[in-house]
Amino acid sequence: MFEARLISATILKKILDAIKDLLNEGTFDCSDSGIQLQAMDNSHVSLVSLTLRSDGFDKFRCDRNISMGMNLGSMAKILKCANNDDTVTIKAQDNADTVTFMFESPNHEKVSDYEMKLMNLDQEHLGIPETDYSCVVRMPSMEFARICRDLAQFSESMLICCTKEGVKFSASGDVGSANVKLAQTSSVDKEEEAVSIEMQEPVTLTFACRYLNAFTKASPLSGQVQLSMSADVPLVVEYRIQDLGHIRYYLAPKIED
């Protein structure tokens, strides 16, 4: 028996919004430590890794490890039926071929359940090595989203250059060129507004704007985003989900042809 309850459906809606542009389907691996999903986009350029810890749920029960392959478009249809303040419970029997989403209104007067067929997905799991990154940038997630949106107008690719002075995002194309420089903040009123840079070695890498923009769909999950970079390895874009876990996107860099 698997059962996981969240007090507010909003968080699940936001998580789905953060992955459904990149992935058509995904396998949710459930164990007593929580729920994990790891999947590559169709082009095998990026990898999404979602971790939701069992202690972050209002209720969590997982008697036997189960893997539930879900069509994320279908899951989105179901979650649309939940109000933001509804409690959501995800339930499945051991070896079941369906999963049930149950939504309860705050006053418990309306209860709805939606059963969805599970899919058998033959997904490859990749081992991600522990890496000490040359540069780790933390910045407001809305600022990162804004920069990705703005620079995507100029080119398919964006250069991210990180030094101890700051981080610079650049794009150039037929229209002209764009550069956005962010310096480390010295003092801020709110921690969420801070830009911080931990640098061992300066790094310059090129990435596809389309994927970066897809990652920024996770912005509503967290006030801050963390970018981890080293030469010639994938960028990690991480959004922490408060008290519940995180979503990490890995993006392969572009290289000179």
Binding site: L126, G127, P129, P234, Y250
Partner: peptide, 14 residues
């Protein structure tokens, strides 16, 4: 001209 690399070339299959 830049070439997009594949994510699988960086990670090992489990």
């Amino acid at each position: 001209k830049t070439k997009q690399q594949n994510i699988m070339s960086f990670f090992t299959k489990k």
